[in-house]
């Protein structure tokens, strides 16, 4: 059996978990390739025009996997449905709707879902066991597989965190890139923005990769969206080490709109700009902004 996993939106950060779960049970998994301009073009055609850039990218990845499915290379495509992935906070509503959007767009394709809902005690662990049941695996193996998958996910996150921590270099300027994981780490957006930013003088670190401690309470006691909380945790952790901050928003983003004023107030005294990206964002506009941002960080006096 071969199952496709889209490399986009909320699923992105949990890919090691799903891949190891399938591996443990002898199922092959195919992760869609990194986002390119073509992914976005495809997604733009399929998704409704009002949707955010991240959803359009997601639909582009689904399009890629559906192509594999129709060529009988895949037996199904996994899209988990996430109601609530934290105890007190909501995730973006998109995470709830993705499965149904994909199914409505491609009625003849087999999509596999599994629900995550922390308010009903449906944790990632239990949702993996349910996934095993849906796929007709035996219950012992899906239990052990879920255990193994969560271990692997934890290892992966720790490794990512350590890699970033070792990357911090005080001989260079450290620029904290703020934004949702699926935006700032996305293949295309990375190429569009981060590749222009990172050079021999500037080092990029990401707020979304943090050690998960609830530091957001220093900024605001109550937050509605869990994505926002994760970003603020990162800001609180790395702010003492950074020389400049860049906030990348996928246009339009509901979760970012609730925190960007808070972020602006928290970051005082160091260079800070906001960039919003959509599918029409051109390279030239971005370059001018990034170049002048770098000049600002360098802070050189000409007169």
């Amino acid at each position: 059996m071969k199952i496709g996993i889209p490399n986009a939106l909320f699923i992105r950060e949990k890919i090691p978990m799903y891949v190891s779960f399938f591996k443990y049970n002898g199922i092959d998994s195919v992760v869609s390739t990194n986002t390119t301009l073509k992914t976005i073009e495809d997604g733009k055609e399929i998704a409704t025009s009002e949707e955010c850039i991240a959803s359009k990218i997601f639909m582009g990845h689904i399009h890629e996997l559906v192509n594999l499915y129709t060529n009988e290379y895949l037996d199904g495509i996994l899209i988990p449905r996430i109601y609530k992935n934290g105890k007190n906070m909501e995730g973006c509503v998109k995470s709830l709707a993705l499965y149904d959007i994909a199914r409505a767009t491609y009625p003849n394709v087999k999509f596999i879902d599994t629900n995550v809902d922390y308010s009903k005690n449906m944790t990632y662990f239990k949702s993996l066991i349910n996934l095993g049941v849906t796929l007709g695996l035996n219950s012992k193996n899906s239990f052990l597989g879920a255990f193994y998958a969560l271990e692997e996910q934890k290892k992966f996150e720790q490794r990512k965190y350590h890699e970033q921590f070792e990357k911090i270099d005080f001989k260079k300027k450290n620029i904290l890139v703020i934004g949702n994981e699926y935006i700032v780490q996305d293949g295309y957006i990375k190429k569009l923005i981060i590749s222009n930013l990172e050079d021999e003088n500037n080092n990029v670190i990401y707020a979304c990769i943090n050690n998960g401690k609830s530091r957001y309470k220093n900024i605001s006691n109550h937050l509605y969206f869990i994505n926002g909380a994760n970003i603020l945790n990162g800001i609180e952790e790395y702010l003492p080490l950074t020389d400049a901050c860049l906030f990348i928003t996928g246009f339009p983003c509901a979760t970012d709109s609730l925190i960007n004023e808070m972020v602006k107030k928290r970051i005082k005294g160091i260079p800070y700009i906001e960039l919003s990206v959509d599918e029409n964002t051109s390279n030239t506009g971005i370059q001018t902004r990034i170049e002048s941002f770098k000049d600002m960080i360098e802070g050189r006096r000409y007169v």
């Binding site: 700009i273 506009g285 002048s292 600002m296 802070g299 050189r300």
Partner: peptide, 11 residues
């Protein structure tokens, strides 16, 4: 102090 500290451009 002779250094750009903030800027914004129409998007």
């Amino acid at each position: 102090n002779g250094v750009v500290i903030d800027y914004a451009m129409n998007t």
